[in-house]
Design a protein around this nucleic acid. Structure first.
Length: 479
DNA sequence: ATGTGC
């Protein structure tokens, strides 16, 4: 089944010291001169292209054992596998003990997905689409927003995520939330991974966002962000597992609202800070790794690992609240345009995060946790379906699933060549995408991504996930 | 990923 191109690629990699084999829907990769490193595996259909850069990055990750303590236990990658800018491939999952690798998460801390549904037909939605778009434009059309928030609320959300934010919205004298719509948010907390609350600390947050008292002007909360991030209105076109779908509140014909966003500038700030610190900690008589991956050892520097995890959690908390507030904007406008709709949360889960699992940690970069029975949300693109699935907790793949279809063509390639390609060739025919930046529509066109169906299919066949429902895009908002 | 950039 392998094409000549792939065979040629594997031979070229072998000459560079990277042993890559393909069988049974997966590549295995290992640097020949590192026989003790675990063999990295990539789940990928034979018909899909694979890039040398991404394979090298994954083998480097398997090679990122801390020389003075710590272990790489397991490295794998999901079918949305493609090269990353910072030396770690998107779709990588690494299980470690005695060490964590800040670069394996990077800057986009707690990038994740959130899904709501509403009892509203596509027909009724489209009848007032223009009014809805007009209102959402006002909400979304700026990369920055000036949210004015009490400093104590900001502090609470950095330290405790959604729980902290809810606590700060409580009127202590009456025991009620300051606004009645917050009641619904509180009842939905069990539908957020880790309840949207991790152990963070304000000392890791950008200083200007955590004054002692007063008000904070924040430009990141309740904004979508760039790249592949979006807010999308979809239609539930197929239910594959009715029992689970009903249990999770999803029905055929409903409208779905999907949010893909992360920790914005906070993750950039904290991720960048720790990328630099990990490198500095490394310079204590150790040879610099060529891969630019600098693991922190919990054996030689235990405080560095607890500090990093606390810092990562601080950004993760911000991301959970960011998605929550984006969803509240959506619900507000839906109610304004379509009347009293509940639009309940189905699930919110991170796909860029380090979690304690097994004897150590699992770091996923562009990969969803997919533990047994857990809801998993995998978006396609603005012109192709997205999926709601259930995790099967497959330990061969570190209990993970892909976070999307995976990029096929770079943003740069599309901004340079895409503008000269036809709408049809870009897969944009019939796509309703609202964005102020025309190039975003090109860079994020369906042709930028792998076809989602085989990506889902290979994960179902390999026993990572089970499909619960499929949603078709109606309207996409890009920043 | 980031109001970015070969």
């Amino acid at each position: 089944m392998q094409s000549k191109n792939i065979s040629r690629l594997l031979r070229a990699l072998a000459r560079q010291g990277l042993d890559v084999q393909y069988n049974n829907q997966s590549y295995s990769a290992r640097w020949v001169d590192s026989p003790d490193a675990p063999i990295a595996e990539v789940l990928l259909p034979a018909s899909f292209p694979v890039e040398a850069k991404a394979l090298k990055q994954l083998a480097n990750l398997a090679n990122a054992k801390h020389p003075k303590g710590g272990n790489i236990c397991h490295v794998c990658a999901t079918p949305d596998f493609h090269p990353g800018d910072a030396g770690v491939a998107i779709g990588s999952v690494v299980q470690t003990s005695g060490q964590v690798i800040p670069a394996a998460v990077g800057s986009d801390i707690n990038c994740g997905m959130r899904l709501h549904v509403a009892d509203l037909s596509a027909e009724k939605f489209l009848a007032r689409r223009d009014r809805f778009v007009e209102l959402m434009k006002g909400d979304f059309f700026f990369g920055k927003r000036d949210v004015t928030m009490a400093a104590r609320t900001m502090k609470a959300l950095f330290q405790d995520g959604v729980t902290g934010w809810l606590d700060s919205m409580l009127d202590k004298s009456t025991g009620n939330f300051v606004r009645s719509d917050i009641n619904q948010i509180a009842t939905e907390i069990d539908r957020i991974f880790l309840n949207g609350s991790m152990s963070g600390h304000i000392k890791w947050a950008p200083q200007e966002l955590v004054p002692e008292s007063g008000l904070v002007r924040d430009g990141g909360l309740a904004t979508i962000g760039g790249g592949n991030h979006f807010v999308e209105v979809q239609w539930v076109e197929q239910i594959t597992n009715p029992k689970l779908a009903y249990r999770w509140g999803v029905k055929k014909g409903q409208l779905a609202f999907m949010i893909h966003s992360g920790s914005r500038n906070v993750g950039k700030y904290i991720g960048g800070m720790w990328r630099d610190w990990a490198r500095k900690l490394w310079s204590e008589g150790l040879k610099y790794p060529d891969s630019r991956l600098f693991p922190l050892s919990s054996i030689t520097h235990p405080e560095s690992v607890t500090d990093y995890l606390e810092a990562e959690a601080t950004a993760a908390n911000y991301a959970f609240v960011n998605r929550l507030l984006l969803a509240e904007l959506l619900r507000l406008r839906l109610r304004q345009v379509y009347g009293d709709l509940e639009a309940p949360l189905v699930y919110d889960l991170p796909h860029n995060i380090t979690l304690p699992e097994g004897q150590g940690w699992v770091t996923r970069k562009g990969a969803c946790p997919a533990h047994v029975g857990q809801p998993v949300i995998i978006p396609g693109s603005m012109g192709t379906p997205s999926y709601l699935l259930m995790g099967l907790g497959n330990s061969d793949w570190c209990c993970s699933a892909s976070h999307g279809a995976g990029r096929l063509r770079s943003r740069f390639d599309l901004s340079r060549k895409g503008n000269r390609e036809s709408e049809d060739k870009l897969g944009l025919t019939g796509v309703d995408c609202i964005t102020l930046r025309a190039e975003r529509r090109i860079e994020e066109a369906p042709a930028a991504y792998k076809p989602i169906a085989p990506v889902i299919d290979v994960q179902v066949r390999a026993g990572l996930v089970q499909v619960v429902a499929r949603m078709h895009p109606i309207l996409t908002f890009k920043a």
